[in-house]
Each structure stands twice: as structure tokens, then as C-alpha cells.
């Protein structure tokens, strides 16, 4: 069963990722990204990280990609990009080599070091009928005790990002009054 889930989710992830890279129309690319994100969310669920899966969908699919689409529609850049142009000579083959190389190195590292990984923590709580939100409670405890400083820091980061964007994107003069 888990194999089945894995295969389907992996197909979603990879198909979506290839779509992002190859589709010329930004809207199609964004929809492919959504596919990937859903695949990842499914994998989170199968790793018992229900909360992360939900947050992944809400934040990524519900906000980030919607923002992407909003910007695409607002700017009207939804015309298909011409993919046949290659701005730098041999850029594509080089990029492919680098990309595949990175993947290969990481895979090699994983395969060679997988035996060395052992259980080091106190365990991840499984979801059961008696305590359906065990995972969430555990996650919350760790975030708000050990990592509370990092948590506060990210909230400040978000605030700075929002204010910065508003300041940057605002128009200073209106139509008609001139400068």
C-alpha cells in the first residue's frame, strides 16, 4: 500500500517538476508546481507529518502559487516564452550536466551513508485513534520550547518582508497630478 502511495506521489512530484522546467507558459508552469507540491504533501502524510502536509498545502498551494498566478495575471506576462532561444552558447547542455551531476553526487552520498544513520532522537509520535494529534502536539512542544527564539525570528522576518515589499512596490505619484 505504501509502495503504491509512493509511486503515485513520486510520479506527481517528478511530472510536476519537469512541467515547471519545460512548460513555456508561466501559468502552466505554476499549475505543474502545484502538482509537485501536492505530491510532496502526500509524502509528508505517509511520513506521519500530517500537520506539515496541511501547512504545505495552505502555504504553498493556497498562498504562494496564488500569488504567483496573481502576479502573472496582473502583469499580463502570461504569453508563452520562446524556449527555442538559448541566450548563452551551450548553456543547456552545461546546465544539464551540472544538474545531473549534483543529483548523482547527492544520490551517491545517500547510498553510501545510509547504513550509518541510526535512530538518534526520542522518536516521532505516531498518530493513533487514542491520540490523533500526537504528531502535532510533539511538533508544537519542540517549536515553542527549544526553538522559540527561531520562531520569533521568523515572524520578524515575515513582518520585515511584508513591509519591505509594500514600500518597494508602491507607486509614489498618481496619474494626472504629475511630478
Amino acid at each position: 500500500m505504501e509502495l503504491f502511495v509512493f509511486v503515485v506521489a513520486a510520479a506527481m512530484v517528478l511530472g510536476g517538476a519537469l512541467g515547471v522546467v519545460t512548460r513555456s507558459n508561466p501559468v502552466h508552469a505554476a499549475m505543474s508546481l502545484v502538482l509537485t507540491l501536492f505530491g510532496i504533501a502526500v509524502m509528508f502524510v505517509s511520513h506521519n507529518a500530517h500537520f506539515l502536509a496541511a501547512v504545505q498545502v495552505i502555504v504553498y498551494a493556497g498562498a504562494i502559487v496564488v500569488l504567483f498566478l496573481f502576479v502573472i495575471m496582473l502583469l499580463g506576462v502570461d504569453k508563452a516564452e520562446d524556449l527555442s532561444v538559448e541566450p548563452i552558447t551551450n548553456q543547456r547542455p552545461l546546465a544539464a550536466i551540472i544538474g545531473v551531476g549534483i543529483s548523482a553526487i547527492v544520490i551517491a552520498a545517500i547510498v553510501s551513508s545510509r547504513a550509518g544513520l541510526g535512530a538518534s532522537g526520542e522518536g516521532v509520535n505516531e498518530t493513533t485513534f487514542e491520540s490523533p494529534d500526537a504528531n502535532i502536539r510533539q511538533l508544537a512542544r519542540v517549536i515553542f520550547s527549544d526553538n522559540v527564539f527561531a520562531f520569533e525570528l521568523t515572524s520578524v522576518l515575515l513582518l520585515v518582508a511584508v513591509i519591505g515589499t509594500v514600500v518597494m512596490a508602491r507607486k509614489t505619484k498618481s496619474v494626472g497630478t504629475g511630478k
Partner: peptide
């Protein structure tokens, strides 16, 4: 803007085109 703008303001209308 026939009525709303004075002559000097109307001259600035050229900037509408650059703004938008």
C-alpha cells in the same frame, strides 16, 4: 479634464502618458 485642470496642469498631462 476640460474643466478641471488649469492650463499649467493641462500641460503636465503629457506625463500621464509616461506614468501609464
Amino acid at each position: 479634464s476640460v474643466l478641471r485642470l488649469s492650463e499649467t496642469e493641462a500641460a503636465l498631462l503629457a506625463e500621464v502618458q509616461t506614468e501609464a
